[in-house]
Amino acid sequence: MSVFSDWDILRNLLLAARWTVVLSLIAFAGGATVGLLLTMMQVSGRTLLVRFTRLYIELFQGTPLLMQLFLVFFGLSLMGLEVSAWFAAALALTLFSSAYLTEIWRGCIESIPRGQWEASRCLGLSYFEIMRHIILPQALKVAIAPTVGFSVQIVKGTALASIIGFVELTKAGTMLNNATFEPFKVFGMVALLYFLLCYPLSVASRKLERKLNVAR
């Protein structure tokens, strides 16, 4: 058994937490980019685009994130594409988060009264002009709080990346536990660090919801 002081354990966990934060940011940015494109496709009214989007959402919402990580990491390797744990984790989390963000944003856009769409068409505005000047500015206010809230799920979802060898907070905790045989102390610190990462996001989501008066 290796001898680690409490500071040694915490220092190593903090170093690993950096990669949890980086992976979360990559997954959120990638998911937001793909999710925005899919949202526009879903509300376009074009049958083929809507069906494709629905299939995409059902696929990634209907399967566990853990399975998606396995399929990306091992599936691409079987196809002859050698990928790192970094790339596989980022890609899987991007696809996973984009499916949920698409549904969140679709609901926010559809919450805008239909009368505003009809009035805009009466003014002769094109679809893109309606979205840019009328619908999206209002939907944005509704979307901010649930989007920030979902970012908590992305942070927690990064823990599953440890299963494919990506060394983030959970994986570092497992490695330290194997070296120290002090699971309560090590995983207690891991849980505390996850709490410190997620709690500010949860608070921000509630404050934004109250500030923007989404309920009204």
Rank of each mutant, 00 (worst) to 15 (best):
Q138Y: 03
V142A: 12
I164M: 01
L140D: 00
E168L: 07
V152N: 09
V142E: 03
A161N: 03
G165H: 11
G165N: 07
V148Q: 04
I154D: 05
A139E: 09
L136W: 10
I134S: 03
K141Q: 14
Q138W: 05
V148C: 05
L140Q: 07
L123V: 12
K171W: 08
Y127D: 02
L136A: 12
I130Y: 00
S151E: 01
I154A: 03
L136S: 05
S162P: 09
K156V: 07
V167G: 00
I164N: 00
S162I: 09
I130H: 07
A143L: 08
V167N: 09
K141I: 05
I154W: 02
Q138K: 13
H133R: 14
Q138P: 08
F166Q: 02
S126W: 10
F150I: 04
E168S: 03
S162K: 05
G124W: 12
P146H: 08
P146S: 08
I154N: 07
L169S: 07
I164P: 02
Q153N: 15
E129Q: 15
P137F: 14
L123D: 11
T147N: 04
K141D: 01
L160D: 00
L125I: 13
A172P: 02
I144V: 15
M131S: 04
R132C: 04
G165F: 12
F128T: 14
C122Y: 01
L136F: 14
I130A: 13
I134N: 11
I154K: 06
R121S: 10
G165L: 06
E129V: 11
P146M: 10
I154Q: 03
T170D: 01
K156N: 04
F128Q: 14
A145F: 04
M131Y: 13
L136C: 05
I164W: 06
Y127W: 15
K171R: 15
T147R: 01
A143T: 05
F166N: 02
I163V: 15
F150T: 00
P146K: 07
Q138A: 07
V148L: 08
C122R: 00
F150A: 00
L136K: 03
I144L: 15
V155C: 06
L125W: 11
H133E: 12
F128K: 08
H133M: 07
I144C: 07
S162F: 09
R121A: 13
I163T: 15
I164A: 02
A145H: 05
C122I: 14
T158P: 01
R121C: 00
T170G: 01
I135V: 15
T170A: 11
P146T: 06
L136T: 07
P146E: 09
V167T: 14
S126V: 10
V148P: 06
V155A: 02
H133G: 00
R121P: 00
F166W: 11
I154F: 07
L125K: 13
T158S: 13
A172W: 04
G149R: 02
I130M: 15
I163C: 02
L169D: 08
A145T: 06
P137Y: 13
T147F: 11
Q153F: 11
G157L: 10
L140V: 12
V152W: 11
F166E: 08
R121W: 13
L125Q: 12
T170M: 15
T147G: 15
G149A: 14
L140K: 11
K156Q: 10
F150C: 00
G124M: 11
V155P: 01
A143E: 07
